[in-house]
Amino acid sequence: QEELVKAFKALLKEEKFSSQGEIVAALQEQGFDNINQSKVSRMLTKFGAVRTRNAKMEMVYCLPAELGV
Protein backbone atom coordinates (compact mmCIF):
# COMPACT_ATOMS: atom_id res chain seq x y z
CA GLN A 1 0.00 0.00 0.00
CA GLU A 2 2.80 2.38 0.93
CA GLU A 3 4.62 1.65 -2.33
CA LEU A 4 1.44 2.30 -4.29
CA VAL A 5 0.98 5.70 -2.64
CA LYS A 6 4.60 6.64 -3.39
CA ALA A 7 4.28 5.60 -7.03
CA PHE A 8 0.94 7.40 -7.34
CA LYS A 9 2.33 10.67 -5.98
CA ALA A 10 5.42 10.39 -8.18
CA LEU A 11 3.23 9.98 -11.26
CA LEU A 12 1.10 13.00 -10.41
CA LYS A 13 4.24 15.07 -9.91
CA GLU A 14 5.04 14.52 -13.58
CA GLU A 15 1.88 16.45 -14.50
CA LYS A 16 1.26 14.57 -17.71
CA PHE A 17 -1.79 12.42 -16.96
CA SER A 18 -5.04 13.83 -18.27
CA SER A 19 -7.29 10.91 -17.35
CA GLN A 20 -7.68 8.40 -14.57
CA GLY A 21 -7.28 5.63 -17.13
CA GLU A 22 -3.80 6.88 -17.97
CA ILE A 23 -2.86 6.82 -14.27
CA VAL A 24 -4.22 3.26 -13.94
CA ALA A 25 -2.18 2.12 -16.97
CA ALA A 26 1.00 3.75 -15.66
CA LEU A 27 0.60 2.12 -12.24
CA GLN A 28 -0.07 -1.27 -13.85
CA GLU A 29 3.13 -0.87 -15.87
CA GLN A 30 4.96 -0.45 -12.57
CA GLY A 31 3.60 -3.77 -11.34
CA PHE A 32 0.50 -2.73 -9.38
CA ASP A 33 -1.75 -5.32 -11.00
CA ASN A 34 -4.72 -4.85 -8.68
CA ILE A 35 -5.14 -1.14 -9.39
CA ASN A 36 -8.28 0.04 -11.16
CA GLN A 37 -10.06 3.26 -12.02
CA SER A 38 -12.18 3.36 -8.86
CA LYS A 39 -9.09 2.99 -6.65
CA VAL A 40 -7.34 5.77 -8.56
CA SER A 41 -10.43 7.94 -8.19
CA ARG A 42 -10.48 7.38 -4.41
CA MET A 43 -6.76 8.15 -4.14
CA LEU A 44 -7.16 11.36 -6.17
CA THR A 45 -9.89 12.45 -3.76
CA LYS A 46 -7.95 11.36 -0.66
CA PHE A 47 -4.87 13.38 -1.60
CA GLY A 48 -6.84 16.36 -2.88
CA ALA A 49 -5.55 16.04 -6.44
CA VAL A 50 -6.83 18.64 -8.86
CA ARG A 51 -6.88 19.03 -12.62
CA THR A 52 -4.88 21.96 -13.87
CA ARG A 53 -3.11 23.12 -16.99
CA ASN A 54 0.52 22.10 -17.35
CA ALA A 55 3.22 23.99 -19.26
CA LYS A 56 1.85 22.62 -22.54
CA MET A 57 -1.63 23.91 -21.65
CA GLU A 58 -2.97 20.38 -21.26
CA MET A 59 -5.46 19.57 -18.50
CA VAL A 60 -3.63 17.20 -16.16
CA TYR A 61 -3.97 15.82 -12.65
CA CYS A 62 -1.59 17.15 -10.02
CA LEU A 63 -1.28 17.33 -6.25
CA PRO A 64 -1.63 20.55 -4.27
CA ALA A 65 1.82 21.99 -3.57
CA GLU A 66 1.28 22.18 0.19
CA LEU A 67 1.49 18.39 0.46
CA GLY A 68 5.20 18.74 -0.18
CA VAL A 69 5.53 15.47 -2.07
Rank of each mutant, 00 (worst) to 15 (best):
E2K: 10
E2D: 13
E2N: 11
L4C: 15
L4Q: 02
K6G: 06
K6H: 10
K6N: 11
A7G: 02
A7L: 07
A7Y: 06
F8L: 08
F8Y: 01
F8R: 00
K9Q: 08
K9R: 11
K9I: 15
K9L: 15
A10V: 07
A10P: 02
A10C: 07
L11W: 03
L11S: 02
L11T: 03
L11K: 01
L12C: 04
K13D: 06
E14M: 15
K16F: 05
K16G: 04
K16S: 08
F17T: 04
S18W: 06
S18T: 13
S19Q: 07
Q20F: 08
E22N: 05
I23F: 08
V24I: 08
V24F: 05
A25C: 07
A26C: 04
A26Q: 07
A26D: 03
Q28E: 08
E29D: 10
E29F: 08
E29P: 01
Q30G: 06
Q30L: 14
G31H: 04
F32K: 01
D33S: 14
N34T: 11
N36C: 04
N36G: 07
N36M: 04
Q37Y: 09
Q37F: 09
S38K: 13
S38V: 12
S38H: 13
K39A: 13
V40M: 03
V40L: 05
V40W: 01
V40S: 00
S41I: 08
S41T: 08
R42A: 14
M43V: 01
L44N: 01
K46F: 15
K46T: 10
F47G: 02
R51P: 03
R51F: 14
T52N: 08
R53H: 12
N54L: 03
N54P: 02
N54R: 03
N54W: 02
A55I: 08
K56V: 07
K56M: 10
K56N: 13
K56Q: 12
M57D: 15
E58N: 06
M59V: 09
Y61C: 01
Y61N: 01
C62Y: 07
C62S: 14
A65C: 04
A65I: 11
A65R: 09
G68Y: 03
V69I: 09
